[in-house]
Design a protein around this nucleic acid. Structure first.
Lengths: 262, 262
DNA sequence: GAGTGGTCTAGACCACTGT
DNA sequence: CAGTGGTCTAGACCACTCC
């Protein structure tokens, strides 16, 4: 025999799945449901908790429980890398027009707000392995958050790492007041004579930590995509490592793999 | 003032984050914690529920609450596509040796168990758009689940679609008893004269539905990666669409983007 | 059988939303 | 102010695990 709260959750899922309840519709109040099912309010709340964890409903304090609205999506495609490389050697005016993020989102620089913080940090074991340098090597950590100006929360959190010694040839790269840098990281690397050969992206998913949930303002029942981007120079060195946290409910990633012809 | 259960959750997170409690360690019993914090058991359970949703602890009925063990990872890399293409025209003996999944996991066919079901279904709006065919066009739906023989749950769920008319030239392709087909889908397509030009993979993350959670035996506090793979033939047609559900806590996807040289 | 977590109840009181 | 969900309590009883 199924547990009571699971049976109730199934019962509530039905009309939503079937489209009889549409996004934005309010469910009956918890007290009403308790009476209808002849159960206590906490039991009803347990059932609703399941639906919330599945991202199916949204609880609004003092207002009611609502069928969840799908959120506006942000796309991220891997052809952004070649596109950014093509622009890396162009003049500043061209580079300023628009960056890779603006290209992905279809918006202009003015619609986005951008916050960056630079720190010099010693490489921990993980990053030392990623760069293949000794632990403790001095790295430049750049922490970005990007958001739509009209929205209250950013749609990504980025920690990007560069080896200080590698970029020492251009002191401007160490200066956070120069952000956002037109042309992005590939142009920054170009100024110190580095050309990228390939980019490897490593993707997993997990529930957000309490901090991520707060910073990205994630509703309960949302997963995050965790992306580590590793950039390889033409001489085989790893020259940049970025860790990106993306909200799973509003991010679509697109990876195209071209195949050689027979 | 922070809510009581959040304060308790923070307090419990500390020693785990700091590594003072190691994976597998048991937390004090709920009754003990209730007494220690001077709170009721349900309040303690609410705090523990947060940690469980974050994937930080695992609750074991009748035994206790334990710091979660990281699970064994399954890798999936996009160079599998070129590798599979290279093998698609080789003889059956070579193709039989190992498939793309075995290559990803580093295991042999004998370690894996595989279940496939074939159905003919009419294209719904979503699939019709993906294939660029009229709604209702007859498709072959193939439903796979792959798992380690020694484990109780599969590590992926796949629904793959082909247009029946396109593969009609080789009736064996419609026969589910022929699975697993040595050489995979790219070889199957080769038998009806189709060569792939590129593969586009579309990735999002979300919490599992109740069904997925059951089929993949996901612990609470696990997200799923949702991957749609679209295969384009050299003539530009979409010839296969696959929807793959992967457990976020044990899947690492790797995408390499080669860049053109300056 | 002792100890653990899981389910469920009944109700008090607080906090937020809208009129 | 009425109605809603959010937090917390105190305790009964069940189900599972291990000795």
């Amino acid at each position: 025999m199924a547990k009571v709260y699971e049976r109730i959750a199934d019962d509530l899922r039905g009309p939503i799945r079937a489209g009889e309840m549409r996004p934005g519709d309010r469910l009956p109040s918890e007290a009403t449901l308790a009476e209808r099912y002849g159960r206590s309010v906490p039991t009803i709340r347990q059932a609703l908790g399941l639906l919330e964890a599945e991202g199916m409903i949204e609880k609004k304090h003092g207002r009611g429980n609502f069928v969840r609205q799908p959120r506006s999506l942000v796309h991220r495609s891997n052809d952004r890398h070649q596109w950014e490389k093509d622009r890396a050697r162009q003049d500043e005016e061209t580079r300023s027009e628009t960056g890779a993020t603006e290209r992905d989102t279809g918006l202009h620089l003015g619609d986005l707000s951008f916050h960056a913080e630079y720190h010099r940090v010693p490489a921990n074991a993980d990053l030392a392995a990623a760069f293949d340098v000794p632990e403790g090597t001095e790295l430049l950590e750049r922490h970005y958050a990007t958001q739509y100006r009209i929205e209250s929360a950013p749609f990504n959190l980025v920690r990007s790492y560069l080896v200080c010694e590698v970029i020492a040839g251009n002191p401007a790269l160490l200066d956070e007041t120069k952000e956002p840098w037109p042309g992005g990281t590939q142009n920054q690397l170009y100024t110190v004579g580095i050309e990228l050969d390939r980019i490897v992206e490593h993707v997993t998913a997990r529930p957000p930590t309490a901090e991520e949930s707060e910073e990205l303002d994630l509703p309960p029942g949302t997963a995050v995509l965790v992306l580590r981007k590793t950039s390889y120079a033409t001489d085989g060195r790893v020259v940049e490592v970025s860790d990106v946290i993306l909200p799973g409910d509003r991010t679509e990633m697109l990876f195209t793999t071209p195949l050689e012809r027979w």
